[in-house]
């Protein structure tokens, strides 16, 4: 339990660091030196030191947005098995709770964006409301797959100890699709290229970044930290899936886990470097692919089991 809590705290604290790896990879491909690996901490510290400017159009919901999206991100991490360890909390059906909790975070992010009366933020909000619908369907398809294999409905039954290895043994090849499908969901939910380009300069083409335009100071800091945590959540799952090994020596386990994380973040960076952003009307098709993959994996397991 103590160990899980420490891991949870470490996850929140280290999430910004891993995101910086992604930036480094992008810089490398762009032929630049790139910002230091601690850049996100500098930004967060700077933001938390500042005061805030609020738009006259906004109400209390605008202030609730960052709070609830951050809370939902860190609450979700409490249910996540990190490096194969048991999570702080776990119960049958916690996955559904987690997914809907993220929905709650999204509701308030969107509501906060609509609160500013800005046309650009409304546009971003509309997209933020659209794409995750298909993502959610894909997530539930993956859950169906996992449930079919294990008969459980909680994250700890998939990602703790040697459960993941067992999953590979049961699932085999279809799990590869699940990994790809999950990676697509990761890109979509965390607004990375090719769905959304966080580094673009034009507000018209953004999704997530445009929604937080009016936030400033600690509020913005909470949003940023929350999105790092969210990315960490997805990356942890992918990392556990690609390196499912369980070691007797815990140091080895952590090493492999961090290695997996680095691979995932580098992969995201690589994707961002080599793929251009899709046209907005192509995005649903991209996300639908992830659903198709998960569905497809489930059909194949029907053959195997």
């Amino acid at each position: 339990m103590i160990e899980s809590i420490i891991l949870w705290l470490l996850a929140i604290l280290l999430a910004p660091f891993f995101s910086a790896i992604m930036f480094k990879v992008k810089a490398f491909f762009g032929g630049r030196k790139g910002s230091p690996l601690l850049i996100n901490y500098y930004t967060l510290i700077k933001l938390f030191k500042k005061g805030s400017v609020y738009s006259t159009s906004t109400t209390a919901v605008f202030k609730l947005g960052p709070i609830i999206s951050f809370t939902s991100a860190i609450t979700v991490l409490m249910f996540l098995p990190i490096a194969g360890h048991h999570p702080i909390f776990s119960f049958n059906g916690d996955v559904i709770f987690i997914l809907y909790l993220m929905g709650l975070g999204r509701f308030f992010t969107i509501a906060a964006a609509m609160d500013t009366a800005s046309p650009f933020e409304g546009m971003g909000a509309a997209r933020e409301a659209y794409f995750p619908i298909i993502c959610e369907a894909a997530m539930f398809m993956i859950l169906i797959f996992f449930y079919r294999l294990t008969g459980h409905l909680q994250l700890s039954a998939y990602f703790t100890g040697d459960n993941t290895i067992a999953l590979w043994n049961l699932g085999g090849a279809p799990l590869l699709f699940i990994v790809i499908s999950f990676f697509i969901i990761l890109l979509t939910e965390n607004s990375r290229v090719p769905v959304d380009d966080p580094a673009t300069h034009l507000e018209l083409t953004m999704i997530h970044e445009v929604m937080v335009l009016d936030h400033s100071g600690p509020d913005l800091g909470l949003i940023e930290l929350g999105s790092f945590c969210k990315l960490f959540f997805y990356s942890t799952i992918v990392s556990r899936l690609i390196l499912p090994f369980d070691f007797k020596i815990s140091a080895m386990g952590y090493f492999v886990f961090v290695l997996g994380l680095i691979i995932v973040y580098v992969a995201i960076g690589l994707t961002e470097s080599v793929i251009a952003r899709y046209r907005m009307d192509k995005v649903p098709q991209f996300v639908l692919t992830s659903f198709a993959l998960a569905f497809f994996a489930t059909i194949i397991t029907l053959e195997f089991i």
């Binding site: 085999g172 090849a173 590869l176 699709f177 098709q285 198709a292 194949i300």
Partner: peptide, 22 residues
């Protein structure tokens, strides 16, 4: 059972069907 080569390859084939449709 883990990653049987023929089945893996065939899964890739099926995957290419989906991609070709998209």
């Amino acid at each position: 059972m883990i990653l049987h080569p023929v089945d893996t390859i065939l899964s890739l084939v099926l995957l290419s069907v989906l991609f070709s449709f998209g």
